[in-house]
Design a protein around this nucleic acid. Structure first.
Lengths: 160, 160
DNA sequence: GGTGCGGTACTCGGATAGAGTGTGTCCGAGTAGTTGAGG
DNA sequence: CCTCAACTACTCGGACACACTCTATCCGAGTACCGCACC
């Protein structure tokens, strides 16, 4: 059960975008910040764009920026955008192949195994949904006060 | 983020083994119950054995049986045995490549992104750890009272 | 000098290879029961 | 008739192919800016 590696990049990039509001930042610069492969990060940002989390602009002066307020973007949104919305536990309804099975039953809802696994995942998703990008930014700013300014400065210098 | 498919088989098999206590059941019979590929289910049962959840016996009259009391086997135990104990979210500490990074810092513990993801996973694992195989068996017996006897009967008939 | 048009440089976007892991299968290692010969 | 040993049949256990998804990359589609010709 491994999550897509791009989720980490995506979340960090969203946080960084919060430090540079009202400006389109290219995938190239976002990638340079963490020394990531540009093309691959671009792919993740595309996924975020498709999900409506970012908005993208082509051409010179183009790039990505947040499409929504940071407090409206949850960690779950980002995870789903990159990693898909499917549950980790896939109930294949093996009970249907068992003896005495009800062909019409939806065992994803009645099987106690499936229910337990789903319940656990639900708490997981709920936890992720409770955390927004704005929360993360706030946490960073209170714990590492210089980070915001440093990041802004770094991106400003790279511009030249 | 997809979990190993074998987890579903493993949990169901553990539950079935609870219905047939004190007897070694072969992978072949367990597989036949749900029409699963025998060799592959065997592989999962091996993993459960390595984890100390099942005990195995070779030769005729051999097979698998629970190595512990059902109320000492949690869903988390089974998931870890089959799917591994690694966290789904892998913090690669990309902050280390960023500007102003502390080379000695362990960002798995200080990075707010990593912390949030880990916290969510922790609630997930806690939920799984709170549910035992015995709980599932009890749930089945109270919801579908005839299942236990039917299962026992099915395995008894197959023996011939 | 002002205006409009074409070229250029730069960006995102999707289509395309390569690597790693999950999925499925096969044959060898080990053991209990059976059967046969010998005492 | 009893004992023992070899054989057989059956099981687990790990090694071996196959397929799919994640990882990584490249080239084409689209756009703002710049420069030049024309009015």
């Amino acid at each position: 059960m491994k999550m897509n590696e791009g989720v980490e990049w995506a979340v960090h990039s969203c946080v960084n975008l919060c430090f540079i509001p009202g400006e389109a930042v290219t995938a190239k610069r976002l990638a340079a910040f963490y020394e990531l492969p540009t093309a691959y990060l671009n792919k993740q940002l595309q996924a975020l764009t498709r999900a409506g989390i970012l908005s993208s602009t082509s051409g010179p002066k183009g790039g990505f920026q947040l499409a929504k307020a940071p407090d409206k973007i949850t960690l779950l949104d980002v995870v789903v955008a990159i990693d898909g919305s499917e549950d980790a536990f896939r109930c294949t309804q093996i009970l249907k192949a068992g003896p005495g099975a009800d062909e019409k039953a939806d065992y994803r809802k009645t099987c106690v195994v499936s229910m337990s696994m789903r319940k656990a995942e639900l708490t997981y998703r709920r936890e992720l949904a409770a955390k927004t990008i704005a929360d993360l930014v706030e946490q960073v700013e209170s714990t590492y006060p210089e980070t915001a300014e440093n990041t802004r400065g770094w991106f400003a210098n790279l511009k030249s």
